Amino acid sequence: NQASVVANQLIPINTALTLVAMRSEVVTPVGIPAEDIPRLVSMQVNRAVPLGTTLMPDMVKGYA
């Protein structure tokens, strides 16, 4: 099972992602792969992401 990126805190809309804001977890459905965490740092989310939410490619500006 592949680990996905999960919000480690509430991430407000247009907030730049940080290492502290993300964690890796095996979840269903699978979201952005955990190995992409370094690439996600400083990218912005295009919606509010609640704690525990799996990050999907369409939630991160410039990711997809």
Rank of each mutant, 00 (worst) to 15 (best):
L19E: 08
V27A: 05
Q9A: 12
I37A: 05
M43I: 04
V45I: 04
T15I: 06
V5R: 00
M43L: 15
M59T: 03
A48W: 13
S24Q: 10
T53A: 13
L10Q: 11
I32Y: 01
A64E: 12
T53G: 07
L51C: 10
S24M: 08
V60I: 14
Y63E: 03
A16Y: 14
I37Q: 01
E25Y: 07
Q44H: 14
Q44L: 15
A34Y: 06
R23C: 06
R47A: 08
R39A: 10
V60Q: 02
L40Q: 01
N8Q: 08
V49P: 05
K61D: 12
E25H: 08
R39I: 15
V27S: 04
A7I: 06
A21P: 02
Q9L: 11
K61Q: 12
G62Y: 07
M56C: 06
T15D: 07
M59L: 03
N8L: 03
V26F: 11
T28D: 12
P29E: 04
A16M: 14
G62N: 12
T54M: 02
V41I: 15
G62P: 04
V49D: 05
V26W: 12
A34I: 06
E35W: 14
S4E: 01
V41A: 04
V20F: 14
P33Q: 06
V26L: 12
A3V: 07
V45M: 00
V27F: 02
V6T: 04
G62I: 03
V45G: 02
E35R: 14
P12L: 09
P33S: 09
A7Y: 01
E35N: 11
P57V: 06
P33R: 09
M22Y: 04
L40W: 02
D36A: 13
T54E: 03
L10I: 10
A34M: 06
G62E: 09
V41N: 04
L40S: 00
I37L: 11
D58L: 08
V26E: 09
L17V: 01
L17Q: 01
R23M: 05
I11D: 01
T15K: 08
T28A: 13
M22A: 00
A48E: 15
E25C: 08
L40G: 01
P38V: 12
E35G: 13
Q44C: 09
G62C: 08
V30Y: 12
L10N: 15
I13K: 15
I11R: 00
G31S: 00
A48N: 15
V5Q: 01
S4Y: 02
R47M: 11
N1S: 14
E25V: 09
V5P: 00
V41P: 01
M56A: 05
T18A: 07
V6P: 02
V45Y: 00
Q2F: 13
D58N: 12
E25T: 08
T54Y: 02
Q44R: 15
D36Y: 13
A21T: 09
V60L: 08
V30R: 13
V30D: 07
P12K: 09
E25A: 14
P50K: 10
R47G: 05
P50W: 06
R23E: 04
L40V: 04
A48P: 11
T15P: 01
E25S: 10
A64N: 14
M56H: 07
R39G: 08
N8M: 06
A34Q: 05
G52V: 01
L55I: 14
V60T: 03
A3F: 12
G31D: 00
S42R: 10
A64S: 15
M43E: 03
G52A: 04
V20Q: 15
A21F: 13
N8P: 02
A7E: 02
A21S: 15
N1E: 13
Q2P: 12
V20K: 15
D58R: 09
L40K: 04
N14T: 04
L17T: 02
L40C: 04
D36H: 15
L19K: 09
V30H: 14
V60H: 02
V26R: 10
G62T: 05
P33H: 09
V45R: 00
I32H: 02
S24K: 11
T18H: 05
S4V: 00
D58V: 08
Q44F: 15
A34K: 05
P33G: 04
D36R: 09
G31W: 03
N46S: 14
P29T: 04
A3D: 05
I13F: 10
Q9T: 10
Q9F: 14
P57G: 07
G52F: 04
V41E: 05
V5W: 00
V26A: 08
A3M: 11
V30L: 15
T28L: 12
Q9I: 12
V27L: 03
L19R: 13
